[in-house]
Amino acid sequence: MNLTDALEISSCTDPGIVRSHNEDSVAADASTGLVVLADGMGGYNAGEVASGMATTVIKAEVAQILGNVEPHLVDEKTNKVFAELILREQIRKANASIYQAAQSQSQYAGMGTTLVVCLFYDNRVMVGHLGDSRLYRLRGKTLKQITRDHSLLQEQIDAGLLTPEQAKTAAHKNLVTRALGIDPGIEPELHEYSTQPDDIYLLCSDGLCDMVSDEDIALTLKALGRHLNLATQQLVQMANDNGGRDNVSVILVRILREYPAARGVVGKFFAWLK
């Protein structure tokens, strides 16, 4: 099912003010309903190699599989929707490729990347993430952080050692506890949410949410949500105006209309007519 006219997508990635090169990668495909954002780490150019591998592998593989499998169907063996199985499998595959490259080539040793990926299908979105790249959702007037960072800071907050207020000024913001390409086996976190028309989904690297407050992000999305390109530019600009100390990447997805999966012979026929 082609989602080009159900989703409006805008993305932007910027090295920021301080760093000379960009280790973030973004990829989006409105037809398959897939958006991927990765924030790489590792010496030399290994960071962008890792994040680039993650986004390209996942985008290409998912597009290919969606040609044969319908993501909303439930697998009888595992009792899970195929969207979840596909994303989990492809994240694992990307992890294996990055890990193998890191192991076999000395210049890539130790590289890794965070990841946040969304697959839109059947009025739903399957969200997978590893590390501290985030997904937010603006619904009506409320901005909500959907993903929970895999970071030391978040663990400290969960354990009650830090309040979210203290966390804003804490040191060691940068320590992630899960990432792609570091270990041979990984456990991506995957959740499904239902979407509504006019929802705006924001995928971002920590370069945005460390530099721009949630209130200012919400303000921008509310003011410019009908003009996604302006909104992405504005978000990146605000991160840079506030210091731009890290690479900044932003993907915005706006739900233009409902996009239920075509069910049964009649439904498929009408879908085919469209």
Partner: peptide, 11 residues
């Protein structure tokens, strides 16, 4: 503090 800004994995 700036040294610790780059993302790292804590395994």
């Amino acid at each position: 503090a700036a040294d610790f800004e780059k993302t790292m994995v804590l395994r």
